[in-house]
Design a protein around this nucleic acid. Structure first.
Length: 280
DNA sequence: AATGGCGCCTGAACGC
DNA sequence: TGCGTTCAGGCGCCAT
């Protein structure tokens, strides 16, 4: 579930953890990557403001002011993988089968539930040092960064020959669009998902730039998409799936031209689009 | 260098 | 309490 909107909704819903003191970090079955630090080593640290880069969450952990070793101790990089979600609260109950990480604080526990265990919690001394530096290297620009312009998108498209849908999924053009929002943004922009990137000129790049921001922004406002597992940290489902343009709507009429929406496979992933109003 | 494909895991839905 | 197959929203790694 988690693409940028779901991760951002999660970030916003765990804001209450800022300022909490870490009591313990408990791990269940192995996640995608090892934690990289002894869990005991972070006890006593304070949680700073939660950040997001692409589909990663960054939970800064700080020493108390005036501590001899400075303010920033490091932080935890969280990734929700394909099936992860976070819950935060003081009454979560005992961990269940798919709860594989839990940061216990004096304001409640932050718990990662992740059936498929493609998610991760990784310690890093900062975002600019390994392992965070390596994990975040190669990520494209943030879609809502004012510095990310239509011209920048066009320049990033120009040297690529791959299909634009696949390029969007790679996160190199811009971060955050996964399978749902890549399909929907391309419908919004009227671009066939099979179009080679290099064939997209400035006008269509501008439409795609606008479409990505619109679709991702609407999805955040809708609380994300809940196809199966996703919940925000308060346990609430998202609503975007009900307003998706094309994702998951094979055979239904296109909202713009009425033709049936088609499903194809690109890079072993489903792509949904309208043959009537999306052009190569 | 760029690109395409694989595999990590588990659970649900489907066809037989 | 049927069983085997297919599919699922991510992403690092490998071979080409």
């Amino acid at each position: 579930m988690p693409e940028l909107p779901e991760v951002e909704v999660t970030r916003q819903s765990i804001g209450g953890i800022e300022g909490a003191r870490v009591l313990a970090l408990r791990l269940g079955k192995p996640l995608r990557w090892p934690l990289g630090v002894a869990p005991d080593a972070i006890a006593g640290l304070r949680v700073g403001p939660v950040g997001r880069r692409g589909k990663y969450l960054w939970l800064p952990l700080l020493h108390d002011p005036g501590a001899p070793d400075g303010a920033a101790a490091g932080g935890l990089l969280w990734h929700l993988g394909m099936s992860g979600s976070l819950a935060f609260g003081s009454g979560l109950g005992p961990p269940a089968k798919h709860d594989h990480a839990e940061l216990v604080t004096d304001r409640g526990a932050l718990r990662l539930t992740d059936p498929r265990r493609f998610g991760a919690v990784v310690w890093s001394p900062s975002l600019d040092e390994p392992p965070a530096r390596k994990l975040l290297a190669g990520l494209g620009p943030e879609p809502f960064d004012p510095a990310w312009t239509a011209a920048a998108l066009h320049a990033a498209l120009k040297p690529r020959r791959t299909a634009v849908k696949l390029a969007l999924l790679s996160g190199e053009l811009v971060v955050g669009a996964g399978n749902i929002y890549a399909s929907d943004a391309l419908w919004e922009a009227g671009i066939d998902p099979r179009t080679p990137c290099a064939r997209i000129g400035p006008a269509r790049a501008r439409r795609l730039h606008e479409a990505l921001r619109r679709v991702l922004g609407e999805a955040i406002a809708a609380g994300g998409s809940t196809l199966r597992d996703f919940r925000n940290a308060h346990g609430e489902v998202g609503q975007y799936q009900g307003q998706a343009r094309v994702y998951g709507r094979e055979g239904e009429p296109c909202a713009r031209c009425g033709r049936p929406i088609r499903r194809i496979v690109q890079g072993q992933r489903a792509t949904y689009f309208c043959t009537g109003c999306q052009h190569c």
